[in-house]
Write a protein that binds this DNA or RNA. Sequence first.
DNA 1: CCAAATCTGATGTACGTAAATCAAAAAATA
DNA 2: TATTTTTTGATTTACGTACATCAGATTTGG
Lengths: 341, 341
Amino acid sequence: MRPTVHDIAAAAGVSLATVDRVLNQRPGVRHVTREKVEAAIRDLGYVRDVAAANLAKSRVYPLTFILPASDNSFMHGLNAEIRAAMARSAAERTDIRIVEVPAFDPQALVRELETVATEKPSGVALVATDAPDVRAAVDRLVKDGIPVVTLVSDLTGSLRHHYAGVDNIAAGRTAARLLGRFLGGAQGEIAILAGSMLVRDHRERLEGFTAVMAQEFPALHLLSVLEGRDDPEVAHMLIADALGKNDGIIGIYSLGAGNRGLVRALKEKAVDRTLTVIAHELTVHTRAALLDGTIDAILNQDAGHEVRSAIRVLKAKADGLAVIDAQERIRLDIFLKDNLP
Amino acid sequence: MRPTVHDIAAAAGVSLATVDRVLNQRPGVRHVTREKVEAAIRDLGYVRDVAAANLAKSRVYPLTFILPASDNSFMHGLNAEIRAAMARSAAERTDIRIVEVPAFDPQALVRELETVATEKPSGVALVATDAPDVRAAVDRLVKDGIPVVTLVSDLTGSLRHHYAGVDNIAAGRTAARLLGRFLGGAQGEIAILAGSMLVRDHRERLEGFTAVMAQEFPALHLLSVLEGRDDPEVAHMLIADALGKNDGIIGIYSLGAGNRGLVRALKEKAVDRTLTVIAHELTVHTRAALLDGTIDAILNQDAGHEVRSAIRVLKAKADGLAVIDAQERIRLDIFLKDNLP
DNA sequence: CCAAATCTGATGTACGTAAATCAAAAAATA
DNA sequence: TATTTTTTGATTTACGTACATCAGATTTGG
């Protein structure tokens, strides 16, 4: 049997109340006594029974998720996964709130972070917009003792406790190698469709992609980046235009959202030519395109895993517990038509 | 606030004791009364607080893991992950026991399953050897009310509650497509190195691989399967021999273990030729080979995920709770040198 | 050395459920 | 109707921890 507070009290030769004061960092314990208790805790290998503690505290974890109000499949999926987690709130003792802020608007995000700070939740998860003010606001939250996890897009250089998302540089590099290898030794042009260079994850994907391309596949020439603003219509226009003007294009890397437009353009303009296409995020549209051969590979991040991981980490941090790192690593999924879930 | 047993009792107009009898399926409740209580449970949306219940029961989940006594990196890794889970036993209320049985020996496995049945654990996880007797033994366990999860290798057609492992047919198909695409339109021979055709997961990988190869890459000719018994020495010998005799080989698919031998053979015999190589399972050896370019892609199943998933599922089944399917799907990881963890 | 301040112990209640006991009520049987 | 059997209620203890209160002990400062 694992030791309880009673065992600690007996071993340290103090009362239960004193053990409790030490464990919960309440005042009124002399230094020497505190050390006696801590020694007993170490010796017996006591670990607080979190379930019992939470029961006694009737603890719930109020968690706030701050998301950009973007109207694309990925954000909708993320939203749905958070709602699914809300449905499990009772069992998980969470009380989850979703807040939407205008996308790509650092100031709005900062204001929201400040509002959230006054509510003192057990934890905050946010899709970070990369700006110094946001960093500062996050750091303030952390210094107030509130666990913070970045979701999907990281905020490097800030004090956030954890990042629940994929390594986007690695994603870009992987896309480059897949595209390069799939194209064999062929020579030609590569079109790149991004959402916006203002978002960190897209910038990082591009960075990784161009690095590997330059180093390992010099026969492939990268065209300048098309910014589709994650909008299917814009994406369609840009790709249709590019394919019409340039028949040297033999490959496409779509690193953002709005792939419905990309797929439509491909079906209209590229039936007669062989294009190799790599895209991000598995949606109904990209899935269908992968199956019918329009897209050759999809790189994906599992929003469900990201949300569940963020919640686990926030709860653990709120309790000062360790997390299983391997479990919380969000993996880059590579889907070919053969290994779709 | 979520409803408690007290609320149910009040709503159903019965006493706490009766609610308890209904909840824990104890005898001594008239049919009509039982239905009144169940109605109240539904109406109020009561869900038992598992943490409190476990606390009251001082419940632990005795779990038994049955593994083949195989001496390869993957099984060692699996073993290590189970031990890591044992280290978390206190917090997770588990009491995990590992039993090793001779590999590829259905009778030994059946005997062990029968022994385990007498111990009435809360759950059993096993790496299944595919045989009718084993299926029957598993079915008996299930009928005794003991949750059973197959690990790594499934036992289709049995009553096991869940399979914690990858889809090996999909894995084989994916390997085929990667190899085919990486080879461009080239023509040549493909060597296949397996552990043994007696193991279901290897058979399934081969099945998926040959299917896609035949259908989509007719220019590639598959050589007959080499069985390396998951042994590095045997694998080395077989591959070195094949490469020496046949210089039409342009690709290799290694779908089992013992890749240390494969890598050594490649470094000795294939420095001057360009081979495309796909292997399974990320280990120190395959990892190094991927980084230095000897191997082009690694397909992997995350043993840690499999073990944690098996434990979660067994606990949930023991409590009659639902599992999050998406969370328990074990994914096929595809590693290129760019997205290694 | 006494008063004040600080520390410690003893005790009780609570969290939500499990499980047991005994008494009382209701139903079934004779 | 009397008796037995079955069903239900009331109550208590327990799980391991949190938290509050009050009394008693010990340590400080003057």
